[in-house]
């Protein structure tokens, strides 16, 4: 990961497009994004097109200097690694206490993540998973600590972006990533068992049951690595064989792409 802060300046915001949110201190609407590169890009694009200034933080060095202008902090790492906890801690220590911190809660609960910060009540989870932000609904999950004000504030923020909100219980995989990853896993088992070729599997799911994308092309777009990360977290959390990863999927995650089997 690059240590250089690439874009610690405000992105261009057209005045007439500005979405109205009242910063508690009456400052600029500025959202800072940390974590997974792919997700940061998706979120940044979506926020900017709604007229929200975005600060993509490639390192934590500049966080303190811009902290006062930040309206909301996002930690989007999918995997719950040391890095994620370090990011959360830095956001918690730098941002004023009333500023919400929204964290990717697909592979670990908000409750678990909250243990690493002081102001636990301001942390709320989001189902941040590649490709899902294209659609109109965002899944949020509060922990037992999350305050009602924070939850309401974050909801309003997304409603302002014309997104619908669904609030679900704090549970690994949340709703959409969990169902989606299991479908893609089964599609890879189906290829692995030589039942059908990948292209036919995609065709079958789109035309036999109206799926919006074929599971394999969708998995490729999401990144097979990310699917394995979610399934491994579900396996660890539930301790159930039903979440075991198709060996072929694990290979694809390492190779970074799908091997298009010619038949």
């Amino acid at each position: 990961m690059s240590k250089q802060v690439k874009s610690n300046k405000l992105k261009v915001v057209s005045k007439k497009d500005t979405v109205h949110h009242n910063h508690p201190e009456g400052g600029k609407h500025l959202v800072c994004l940390l974590g997974d590169e792919q997700l940061v890009k998706e979120y940044s694009t979506t926020f900017q097109s709604a007229g929200i200034a975005v600060l993509e933080l490639k390192s934590l060095a500049s966080l303190k200097t811009s902290a006062k202008k930040i309206l909301m902090g996002f930690e989007l790492s999918l995997e719950s690694t040391e890095l994620k906890l370090t990011n959360l801690k830095a956001l918690d220590e730098s941002l004023p206490a009333q500023i919400p911190i929204v964290s990717n809660a697909v592979t670990s609960t908000v409750l678990t993540q909250a243990q690493s910060i002081g102001h636990k009540e301001r942390l709320i989870g989001i189902a941040a998973f590649p490709t899902l932000l294209e659609n109109k609904l965002v899944e949020l999950t509060p922990s037992l600590y999350t305050s009602a004000e924070i939850a309401e504030y974050v909801k309003l923020f997304f409603t302002g972006l014309k997104k619908e909100i669904a609030v679900v219980e704090d549970s690994v995989g949340m709703v959409m990533p969990r169902i989606l990853c299991q479908i893609i896993n089964e599609a890879l088992f189906t290829v692995q068992n030589d039942v059908a070729n990948p292209k036919d599997i995609d065709t079958a799911m789109k035309f036999g049951t109206n799926y919006p994308h074929g599971p394999i092309e969708w998995g490729e777009k999401i990144g097979f690595k990310n699917i394995v990360t979610v399934l491994d977290a579900l396996y660890k959390n539930h301790g159930e064989e039903r979440y075991s990863v198709a060996p072929l999927l694990r290979q694809m995650a390492i190779a970074g792409t799908f091997w298009h089997k010619e038949k």
Binding site: E186, V195, A204
Partner: peptide
């Protein structure tokens, strides 16, 4: 699409988690 004779073929197999996880 062509599929081998295995339980659920393609669609009814790959769609199982859609219902099962829900």
């Amino acid at each position: 699409v062509q599929t081998k004779d295995t339980p659920g073929f393609i669609v009814n197999r790959v769609a199982r988690p859609f219902y099962g996880e829900a």
